[in-house]
Design a protein around this nucleic acid. Structure first.
Lengths: 110, 110
DNA sequence: TAATGAGCTTACTTAAAGGTAAGGGGATGA
DNA sequence: TCATCCCCTTACCTTTAAGTAAGCTCATTA
């Protein structure tokens, strides 16, 4: 396996940087969700991108995937314990982003 | 002008999310740099991507571009006062990213 | 006169991300 | 028997990001 030296800022951008990943995580922070729930909560995401992003996040250890062998099978996604370590980071990013959006709005309005 | 509602986490990912932007900013945090300096410090970046990313960062207000009307003209890029507000955010992101890289390294080594 | 350096831009090509549409497997319900 | 639900996967196409290579302006230096 190749260990590419990667700038840590790029690392987190890569982990969070899919088109729908912040939104998926936002919903999973609120509560566990099934595939179907996420589809309904994020109406514009395609099934392909949803499952791809969920697999990406699972591979990075951010979320857990639990299969209940019921009929029909139930699959539940949840933020992992490790994933929870990202919440404060996301909050800091979010605060800066909010301020930046506001700033851009004000300058375009002036 | 259209104001697209954007998740603030996506906003910062968008601002920082070019292939060379974290590295450009890292160098500008150390000290002001000229175009040529950045080319030498980041050997793999093409002139096209360097000038494009510099323009992106300038448009977002993160960096300042100062032209000295000397001969030959000298252009200096520096982190703006506003850009400095991103340093603590970058530090938090960096810390998480470092830990994540370490974690991935350890799991691949085991 | 020819070459050099600074700071770019432009045109073209390739690679990566994302979108669309269809299918599939295994059970239940009508 | 036919359709339905759940959780996806696959094939194909489009859009966006990035890479490559060349050129350009103005002035100085050799």
């Amino acid at each position: 396996m190749i260990h590419q030296l990667e700038c840590p800022v790029e690392t987190i951008i890569h982990v969070l940087g899919g088109k729908w990943k912040p939104m998926i995580l936002w919903h999973l922070i609120q509560s566990n969700k099934r595939f179907n729930d996420l589809e309904k909560l994020i109406p514009d995401v395609s099934q392909k991108m949803l499952s791809q992003h969920l697999r990406d996040l699972e591979r990075e250890g951010i979320i857990d995937r639990t299969v209940y062998p019921t009929v029909p099978p139930k699959v539940e996604y949840s933020l992992s314990e490790y994933g929870k370590t990202m919440i404060p980071v996301a909050e800091v990013m979010c605060a800066w982003g909010e301020n930046h959006n506001k700033r851009k709005y004000e300058e375009s309005a002036s």
